[in-house]
């Protein structure tokens, strides 16, 4: 290593930030994982089999990437949006025609949302067909199913926000299904919409759910989900790898 790099990496400032040496040996490669908040959700070591593309297809990671991309583009969209039935649609039009890269921003948010739903469903199928729900991973499977439902909720609540004919009638049809639930159905629908029809109250509630409650839930449960993957010994491929020997 050149001298000046060593001077920097030996400084007290650098060492207060990175609590490990250059990761070219087993100890420091372990410390990278355990002393970094983003890396620490990973196991320190993984089996070669779990890295095989045809084992996991990287679906869980892709879902997480979609979520990150959606948070980022969603935040930018919030700068240009107001959830009122008089102005929401106009803001979308303005975004698409006046704001630089506004149309691209909205497209990316939309397609990433659809991709996330598809990828999360495929991830569920992958985990099922590889038997990765088996003990000790039972409860992480349950968390995963809840995350799938939250992903649908995130997509569904976002669907209303452009306030065009497509959004209005899709949410009208979609929430009418909730009304068929025996007993609590009609009450549930009124609770969701803030009234008997899709209007300003529904837009306000869907907006709050879409930008706050549902993403927070996804963030929290994803953290638990990833943490448990590591606590349960990484991907289930580790297990079969050890059994094969």
């Amino acid at each position: 290593m050149p001298n000046w790099i060593q001077t920097i990496t030996n400084s007290r400032f650098w060492k207060s930030f990175f609590r490990h040496g250059w990761p070219d040996n087993p100890l420091d490669r372990s410390l990278v994982m355990s002393s970094n908040i983003f890396f620490h959700l990973h196991p320190v070591k993984v089996s070669r089999k779990s890295l095989r593309a045809t084992y996991s297809f990287g679906l869980g990671v892709i879902a997480l990437i979609c979520f990150g991309l959606l948070s980022l583009t969603g935040l930018l969209l919030m700068f240009y949006y107001t959830p009122t039935i008089e102005r929401a649609y106009t803001y979308i039009l303005t975004l698409q025609t006046q704001v630089p890269f506004g149309q691209l921003l909205r497209n990316m948010h939309r397609w990433a949302a659809h991709l996330m739903v598809i990828v999360v469903v495929l991830h569920l199928a992958r985990v099922f067909y590889t038997g990765a729900y088996k003990p000790p991973r039972e409860f992480n499977w349950v968390i995963g199913v809840i995350l799938l439902l939250l992903t649908l909720a995130a997509s569904f609540t976002g669907y209303l926000l452009p306030w065009d004919q497509l959004a209005f009638w899709a949410i009208t049809v979609g929430t009418s299904v909730a009304g068929y639930a025996p007993g609590a159905g009609p009450t549930l629908r009124i609770f969701l919409l803030g009234g008997t029809e899709v209007g300003q109250e529904a837009l306000t509630r869907f907006y709050a759910l879409h930008v706050m409650l549902v993403p927070m839930g996804i963030l929290l449960l994803t953290s638990v989900h990833l943490w448990r993957v590591r606590k349960d010994g990484g991907l289930a491929a580790n297990q079969s790898d050890a059994e094969d020997r």
């Binding site: 994982m33 070669r48 089999k49 990437i65 020997r245």
Partner: peptide, 28 residues
Amino acid sequence: APTMMVDHGPENTVFSFPIVALIELVLV
């Protein structure tokens, strides 16, 4: 016990760093 090392023989593992970080970067 719910840890991967217990109850198993020598394993065929690699250090997560840097290979997992690289795979994730490529996926991003």
